[in-house]
Amino acid sequence: NKFNKEMRNAYWEILHLPNLNEEQKNAFIQSLYDDPSQSANLLAEAKKLNDAQA
Rank of each mutant, 00 (worst) to 15 (best):
L17E: 03
Q53F: 10
E13F: 07
E22D: 07
S37M: 14
E22A: 11
I14S: 01
N1T: 02
R8D: 02
A46I: 05
L43V: 06
E45I: 09
H16P: 03
E6V: 05
L49N: 08
K2M: 09
K5M: 00
Q53G: 01
S39T: 05
N26L: 03
D51I: 08
N1K: 11
Q53V: 07
S37G: 08
I29W: 04
A54N: 14
E45V: 09
L15E: 03
N41Q: 09
N21D: 09
W12T: 02
R8T: 08
K5R: 02
F3H: 15
N9M: 15
L49R: 09
E22Y: 15
L42F: 13
F3I: 15
E13D: 10
L42T: 05
N41G: 08
E6D: 10
A44E: 13
L15S: 04
P36H: 03
Y11I: 13
N9D: 08
L20Y: 00
N4W: 15
W12Y: 07
L17R: 04
A10P: 00
S39E: 00
W12P: 01
N1M: 01
N19D: 06
N4D: 15
F3A: 15
A27K: 12
N19K: 10
Q38S: 10
K48Q: 06
K25I: 05
R8K: 15
N4I: 01
R8P: 00
D34Y: 04
L20S: 00
K47V: 06
N19L: 09
F28K: 06
N9F: 14
Q53A: 06
N26H: 10
S31D: 05
A52F: 08
N19I: 09
A27N: 10
N9A: 15
K5S: 01
N41R: 10
P36F: 04
N9E: 13
I29D: 00
A27Y: 06
F28V: 07
L42A: 06
E6F: 01
E45S: 12
N9R: 15
N26A: 13
N50T: 03
N21V: 15
Y33M: 05
D51P: 04
N1I: 14
E6I: 12
S39M: 13
W12H: 09
L43T: 07
L32R: 01
K2N: 15
N41S: 10
Q38H: 04
S37F: 10
D51W: 07
I29L: 08
L42G: 03
R8S: 03
L32E: 00
Q53E: 15
N41I: 11
I14Y: 01
N26T: 02
D34W: 08
I14N: 00
E22Q: 15
K25F: 13
D35K: 14
L32S: 01
M7R: 00
S31N: 07
D35S: 07
I29V: 03
A54W: 04
L42Y: 06
L32P: 00
Q24V: 06
R8I: 14
L49P: 01
P18G: 13
N26Q: 09
L43N: 04
L17V: 02
Y33F: 13
L42M: 08
K25W: 03
I29F: 11
M7S: 02
D35H: 09
P18V: 12
Y11V: 07
K25V: 12
N4G: 14
S39P: 15
A10S: 04
E22H: 14
S31W: 05
K25P: 00
L49W: 09
H16N: 04
N21T: 10
E23Y: 11
N9Y: 14
A40D: 07
A40R: 06
Q30V: 04
N19V: 08
N26E: 08
L17N: 04
M7P: 00
L15K: 15
N9K: 15
L20E: 00
S31V: 06
N4V: 03
N1Y: 00
F3G: 15
A40H: 12
I14V: 03
L49M: 09
Q24F: 11
A54F: 04
A44G: 14
S39Y: 12
Y11S: 02
L20Q: 00
D35E: 09
N26D: 09
A44K: 12
N4Q: 09
A54H: 09
K2P: 07
N1Q: 04
I29S: 04
N1P: 15
L43H: 03
Q53K: 13
L15A: 04
L43P: 02
Y11E: 05
N50A: 15
Q30I: 06
N4M: 03
A52K: 05
P36E: 02
E6S: 03
D51T: 14
E13R: 13
Y11D: 01
Q53W: 08
Q53T: 09
P36G: 11
S31R: 12
A10R: 03
E23N: 14
Y33K: 03
L20D: 00
P36L: 08
S37P: 15
D35M: 03
F28Y: 10
S31T: 09
L15H: 08
E23D: 07
Q30N: 10
W12L: 02
N41F: 04
L15W: 04
P36R: 02
P36Y: 03
W12G: 04
N1S: 02
L43M: 05
D35G: 12
N50R: 05
N4E: 15
K47E: 02
L17D: 02
S31L: 13
A10W: 01
K25L: 12
K47F: 02
S31G: 13
P36M: 05
A54P: 06
K48H: 13
K5A: 01
D35Q: 06
E22R: 15
